[in-house]
Computed example of a mutant assay.
Amino acid sequence: MTKQEFGETDRSLADRSLAGRIASALAARIVAGDLAPDTPVRQDHIAVEFQASHVPVREAFRKLEAQGLLIAAPRRGVRVAPLDPDALIEVTEMRAVLEPLALRHAMPKLAEPDLAVAEEALLAAETSRDIAVWEAANRRFHAALWHPCAMPRLRATLDDLNRVAARYLYATWKELAWQPRSDQEHRDLLAIIRSGERDLACERLGDHILAAGQALHAHLTQPDRA
């Protein structure tokens, strides 16, 4: 899974340093579940894999800790962060506020090429049952709508939040009927944006994010969930 597939925008694409590349590769593994929660992540092993000194590896680890994907604990070292339902709600509520904010600023600048990217992503999602393809298309769809806001700090924050949210989707997608409803909500949202109804588009986007996050949270907190 490539960095482009994750639909990332400003900071991640600009960060082509060795530490940035290491962080991106590890983030992809954590999000997809290839590195399971609580798995130890050893600096020396990562340094050997990427033929790097420990300095960029430590920097990459700090980036991933800041994103909530790794945790460091005394005597336990660095490990993959657990799937925390409370963290999911925090990320969901932040996205539900910040993505509509970005969309509000983006809509006056949205051009046909931006909408074409969103349409392509929507079609890719609707025609695939592969979670990796769908999730990448989902992030491309969202980013296409708010990228023209021209607020780089906000876009970078949304990249981080969407990456963390994707991890929870990967962990639960087989057990939830998530795809048809989400695809339809995306199509409805795109139609509203094309009609120029900015307030309604921002409201629908926030509702869409909240509903998805709350469904994932409810599933993760089921008493019989292993």
Rank of each mutant, 00 (worst) to 15 (best):
Asp159Arg: 06
Ser195Ile: 00
Arg153Asp: 12
Thr127Ser: 15
Asp114Glu: 12
Thr127Leu: 15
Glu65Ile: 15
Leu176Gln: 14
Ala218Asn: 12
Arg155Glu: 11
Leu210Cys: 05
Gln184Arg: 12
Asn162Pro: 05
Asp84Leu: 04
Gly213Pro: 05
Ala47Asn: 08
Ile209Thr: 09
Arg167Thr: 13
Arg187Glu: 09
Ala166Gly: 14
Arg58Met: 12
Ala124Asn: 10
Arg11Tyr: 07
Asp188Cys: 05
Pro82Thr: 06
Gly20Thr: 06
Thr9Tyr: 00
Thr221Pro: 14
Ala215Val: 07
Val48Gly: 13
Glu65Asp: 12
Gln4Ser: 04
Asp44Gly: 01
Glu8Cys: 05
Ala106Gly: 06
Leu161Ala: 12
Asp160Ile: 07
Trp178Asn: 10
Arg95Lys: 15
Ala121Lys: 08
Met94Ala: 15
Ile193Pro: 01
Thr2Ala: 12
Ala137Pro: 03
Ala132Cys: 01
His54Trp: 08
Ala111Asp: 13
Ala144Met: 03
Arg62Lys: 13
Leu158Tyr: 06
Lys109Val: 00
Arg198Ser: 09
Ser17Asp: 06
Leu145Asp: 10
Pro85Asp: 14
Asp44Ser: 08
Phe61Met: 05
Ile71Tyr: 04
Glu126Met: 10
Leu110Thr: 07
Leu145Gly: 10
Ala226Arg: 13
Asp114His: 13
Leu70Ala: 09
Asp114Asn: 15
Ala143Tyr: 00
Ile193Phe: 01
Ser24His: 07
Cys202Pro: 01
Glu185Thr: 04
Ala136Cys: 07
Val117Asp: 15
Ser128Thr: 15
Trp134Asn: 08
Arg167Pro: 10
His219Asn: 11
Ala25Leu: 02
Ala96Thr: 09
Ala218Met: 11
Gly7Tyr: 01
Leu83Arg: 05
Arg153Thr: 07
Ser17Asn: 03
Gln214Arg: 14
Arg58Thr: 14
Gly196Arg: 05
Cys149Ile: 02
Ala143Asp: 01
Ala96Asn: 09
Leu115Phe: 04
Leu103Ala: 04
Ala118Asp: 01
Arg21Val: 01
Gly33His: 01
Glu49Tyr: 08
Ala25Phe: 02
His186Ile: 07
Gly206Tyr: 05
Asp38Tyr: 11
Val133Ser: 04
Thr127Met: 13
Asn162Gln: 15
Val164Asn: 14
Leu145Trp: 09
Ile22Gln: 03
Thr221Val: 15
Glu5Lys: 03
Glu93His: 08
Phe6Ile: 08
Glu90Leu: 07
Asp188Tyr: 02
Pro74Val: 14
Leu13Gly: 00
Glu135Thr: 02
Val164Gly: 12
His219Val: 08
Arg21Ser: 04
Ala212His: 03
Pro223Gln: 11
Arg79Ala: 06
Ser12Ile: 00
Arg139Ser: 00
Tyr168Met: 08
Pro223Thr: 11
Gln67Gly: 10
Leu122Glu: 12
Ala106Lys: 02
Leu83His: 07
Arg11Pro: 00
Leu88Glu: 06
Glu112Thr: 11
His186Phe: 11
Ile71Phe: 06
Leu88Pro: 03
